[in-house]
Computed example of a mutant assay.
Amino acid sequence: MECDRLRGLMGFPVDYEMGHALHTHGPCRGEALFNATKDYVVKIVCKNAASEECGFFNGFFYHDTEPYIITTAHIIGFEGASQYLMMLFDGTRLSEEYAMEVVKCNFALDVAVFRCVTRLPHPPSSKAAVVGISHMVLAVGHSDAQLTFNEGKVTHLSFDGTFSVSTYADAVFSGAPIFNMDGYFVGMVKSGEGTYIKQPVCVGATKIHNALVSEPHPLPGLH
């Protein structure tokens, strides 16, 4: 499109695969948001009955006082998984593994809640917001042993409370939180396991929160 070509000439990066220009807040803004939100994110390791690793996911803290961790529901039983452990990243390396237990699961929404058995210090719940078409967002998650972030643009909103983002999500980005450019939590990467996806599907923050406070077994301390 002519307008996209002109925006490219003006210095805006153009995503030729998607066919449109992307607005950017600059690397400094993205890095600042990453530093402000990275402590929410944990790396999750799945192990089978023989204690062999069989999958890696992301998750994030979502409670002011209890070590509740939100991630995708398809982690449960993934490739024969029966043990779920989490690790923190201190900026240079991953911590030791801490055992988690399942608290609540919604397979239809693909959202699960775990609780770390060890009461680790963690940041309070992030403020949440809703997204709109063309909003810029930030996905924060572990790729292999490195905690990283990818910026993207909301390209589609669904009536079921999910949305799509024009960014790459690698094979272990499922469960990674999504933040808007003001640092508010807006959703979680739902798909991404097993491939590189140009437009990962994300579950919106409102849908996640409503699932957590609904019956049966609503999480205490959430409103």
Results as ranks from 00 to 15, higher is better:
2 E>K: 00
219 L>Y: 12
63 H>F: 09
26 G>K: 00
33 L>A: 11
3 C>R: 09
91 G>K: 13
128 A>G: 13
219 L>W: 06
24 T>C: 03
186 V>G: 09
91 G>V: 08
6 L>D: 12
121 P>C: 05
138 L>W: 15
148 T>P: 15
103 V>G: 01
212 L>D: 08
152 G>Y: 03
117 V>G: 02
126 S>W: 05
166 S>Q: 07
58 N>Y: 05
118 T>F: 08
210 N>W: 11
1 M>Y: 11
114 F>S: 00
117 V>R: 03
82 S>K: 14
204 G>Q: 03
207 K>C: 09
4 D>L: 00
114 F>G: 00
145 A>Q: 08
174 S>T: 09
150 N>A: 06
36 A>F: 09
222 L>Q: 06
180 N>D: 11
55 G>S: 02
86 M>I: 14
168 Y>A: 06
208 I>F: 08
100 M>T: 00
156 H>F: 09
166 S>K: 05
81 A>R: 14
135 H>K: 02
208 I>H: 03
68 Y>H: 11
188 M>G: 04
16 Y>R: 10
147 L>T: 08
179 F>V: 01
103 V>F: 03
89 F>H: 12
195 T>D: 08
4 D>N: 04
102 V>W: 02
93 R>C: 11
25 H>F: 08
30 G>C: 08
145 A>F: 13
99 A>T: 09
38 K>H: 04
74 H>K: 13
191 S>N: 11
14 V>Y: 05
35 N>T: 07
31 E>H: 13
75 I>W: 04
190 K>A: 05
98 Y>H: 08
145 A>P: 14
166 S>C: 09
10 M>L: 15
134 S>C: 12
59 G>L: 01
126 S>V: 08
177 P>L: 14
130 V>S: 11
62 Y>V: 01
40 Y>T: 01
99 A>H: 14
61 F>M: 03
216 P>R: 01
90 D>V: 12
38 K>G: 00
49 A>H: 13
70 I>E: 07
24 T>G: 07
62 Y>G: 00
22 L>I: 10
62 Y>Q: 01
3 C>V: 14
71 T>Q: 05
1 M>C: 06
153 K>E: 14
126 S>K: 06
59 G>E: 07
18 M>A: 15
184 Y>N: 07
40 Y>S: 03
27 P>S: 15
96 E>R: 15
139 A>R: 14
99 A>P: 00
63 H>E: 00
147 L>F: 07
22 L>V: 08
200 P>E: 01
156 H>Y: 14
150 N>Q: 15
77 G>A: 04
30 G>Y: 12
41 V>F: 04
85 L>W: 15
129 A>L: 04
20 H>P: 01
25 H>T: 13
153 K>D: 14
21 A>R: 00
175 G>E: 11
220 P>H: 06
115 R>T: 01
36 A>W: 10
19 G>P: 01
210 N>F: 15
34 F>S: 07
158 S>M: 10
90 D>Q: 04
43 K>W: 06
136 M>Q: 09
49 A>C: 12
58 N>S: 06
17 E>Q: 11
144 D>M: 11
77 G>W: 03
101 E>S: 14
51 S>T: 07
159 F>W: 11
180 N>Y: 02
45 V>W: 10
223 H>D: 11
134 S>K: 06
99 A>Y: 14
10 M>S: 14
102 V>L: 13
59 G>H: 00
215 E>K: 11
130 V>C: 06
12 F>P: 02
108 A>N: 10
182 D>Y: 02
141 G>A: 04
147 L>Q: 10
135 H>I: 07
129 A>H: 05
167 T>L: 13
